[in-house]
Computed example of a mutant assay.
Amino acid sequence: MGSRHGSAGTIRKRSVMIDGHKTSVSLEDQFWESIKEIAAEREQRLTELINVIAEGRDRANLSSALRIFALNHYKQTQRR
């Protein structure tokens, strides 16, 4: 899988299944780890959480939707 380096971290392309169709997302390692942690907190499989996020996105690409989901999750956690 390809990767790019930058100040925000390594971006890796990963394959995921959305509604039974294979697609790819390009995501920084830190966001990928965050999505995995959130899935574990919710006692969901990673693919289940990604499908929920994909279904709820507003025309945003999946990579952006995953980043925004993780950011919002941690912002809400800080408010508690």
Rank of each mutant, 00 (worst) to 15 (best):
residue 69 F to A: 11
residue 32 W to C: 11
residue 43 E to K: 15
residue 35 I to C: 05
residue 28 E to A: 15
residue 35 I to S: 05
residue 9 G to N: 10
residue 38 I to Q: 04
residue 2 G to L: 12
residue 33 E to I: 09
residue 61 N to P: 06
residue 6 G to W: 02
residue 52 V to H: 06
residue 14 R to E: 05
residue 26 S to C: 13
residue 16 V to D: 01
residue 63 S to T: 08
residue 27 L to W: 01
residue 19 D to A: 05
residue 79 R to T: 11
residue 57 R to G: 06
residue 48 E to R: 01
residue 65 A to W: 04
residue 47 T to S: 12
residue 13 K to I: 10
residue 67 R to L: 05
residue 66 L to G: 04
residue 48 E to P: 00
residue 78 Q to C: 09
residue 55 E to F: 04
residue 59 R to P: 01
residue 24 S to D: 09
residue 35 I to A: 05
residue 68 I to C: 06
residue 47 T to M: 00
residue 31 F to S: 07
residue 19 D to Q: 09
residue 20 G to F: 01
residue 80 R to A: 09
residue 19 D to T: 00
residue 18 I to N: 01
residue 15 S to A: 15
residue 76 Q to R: 15
residue 23 T to P: 01
residue 37 E to C: 11
residue 80 R to T: 13
residue 66 L to H: 01
residue 28 E to L: 09
residue 77 T to H: 07
residue 9 G to M: 08
residue 59 R to L: 09
residue 41 E to A: 13
residue 65 A to H: 05
residue 59 R to F: 06
residue 77 T to L: 13
residue 57 R to E: 05
residue 57 R to Q: 11
residue 36 K to A: 15
residue 56 G to C: 08
residue 70 A to H: 03
residue 45 R to W: 00
residue 42 R to Q: 13
residue 32 W to H: 12
residue 39 A to W: 00
residue 76 Q to C: 07
residue 61 N to V: 05
residue 42 R to E: 11
residue 44 Q to L: 15
residue 60 A to H: 11
residue 9 G to Y: 03
residue 45 R to F: 03
residue 39 A to M: 02
residue 19 D to S: 08
residue 69 F to G: 04
residue 62 L to I: 07
residue 68 I to G: 03
residue 53 I to C: 05
residue 25 V to K: 02
residue 63 S to D: 06
residue 19 D to I: 00
residue 10 T to G: 06
residue 22 K to N: 08
residue 42 R to W: 00
residue 20 G to S: 07
residue 42 R to P: 03
residue 27 L to K: 02
residue 33 E to D: 14
residue 6 G to I: 06
residue 30 Q to T: 15
residue 7 S to T: 10
residue 47 T to C: 01
residue 63 S to E: 04
residue 19 D to L: 00
residue 58 D to A: 13
residue 77 T to N: 05
residue 64 S to E: 08
residue 56 G to T: 10
residue 24 S to L: 01
residue 43 E to Q: 14
residue 41 E to L: 09
residue 15 S to C: 09
residue 22 K to E: 10
residue 25 V to R: 02
residue 47 T to P: 00
residue 56 G to M: 07
residue 2 G to C: 06
residue 19 D to C: 02
residue 70 A to D: 04
residue 11 I to C: 11
